[in-house]
Simulated scan of single mutants.
Amino acid sequence: MEDILRPIYQERASNEDTLSILLIERRKEESPITENLDAVLFIIVREANDPLFIKHYEYINQKASLYVATAEQVHEWLLYGTNRRIVDWVLNGKVIFDRNEYVDQLRQRLLDFPQQERVEKTAIEFAKLIRRYIEGKDFYESKHYLDAFNHIIHALHHLARLSVIENGFHPEVTVWSQVRKIEPEIYKLYEELVYSTEELPKRLELLFLASEFLVNQRTEIGSKHFLEVLSEKEEAWTFDEILNHPKLRPYVIDVGVLLEFLVGKGVVRVEKIPTKGKNIYHRHYRILKN
Rank of each mutant, 00 (worst) to 15 (best):
A210G: 09
L206H: 10
K188I: 03
S196C: 07
K224L: 02
Y190I: 04
K233C: 06
L206S: 14
K181Q: 05
N216A: 08
K181C: 07
E228N: 13
E199Y: 15
E232P: 02
E192M: 09
K224A: 10
L189M: 13
E234C: 06
L200E: 08
E183I: 00
L207E: 06
I221M: 02
E198D: 15
E198K: 14
E191M: 14
P184D: 04
K224I: 08
W237H: 00
T219A: 13
E198L: 10
S231M: 08
F208I: 01
S223D: 05
A236M: 12
S196T: 01
E198G: 07
R218W: 10
E220M: 12
H225T: 05
L209G: 14
I182W: 10
E228D: 12
V194P: 07
E191C: 07
A210L: 04
K202A: 12
H225K: 04
K202G: 00
Y187A: 03
G222R: 00
H225R: 12
E192S: 11
V229S: 01
K181Y: 10
A236F: 13
P201L: 14
S196Q: 12
A210S: 13
L230G: 06
A210W: 03
R203W: 00
E192Q: 11
L209W: 13
S196V: 10
L214P: 04
N216S: 08
E235D: 11
R203E: 00
E199V: 14
K202M: 15
F208G: 07
S231N: 06
E192A: 10
Y195C: 00
K224R: 14
A210Q: 10
E220D: 14
E234K: 10
L227G: 00
I182S: 03
S231Y: 10
S223G: 10
E235H: 04
V194L: 14
E205Y: 14
E198H: 12
I221R: 05
I182K: 00
L209T: 15
K224T: 10
E232C: 05
H225G: 02
T197S: 08
H225V: 05
P201Q: 13
V215F: 07
L227H: 05
K233D: 02
E235W: 09
T197P: 11
R203I: 08
I186V: 11
E192G: 04
Y190F: 12
I186H: 04
S211Q: 11
E212L: 06
E235G: 09
E228C: 12
T219L: 13
K224Q: 11
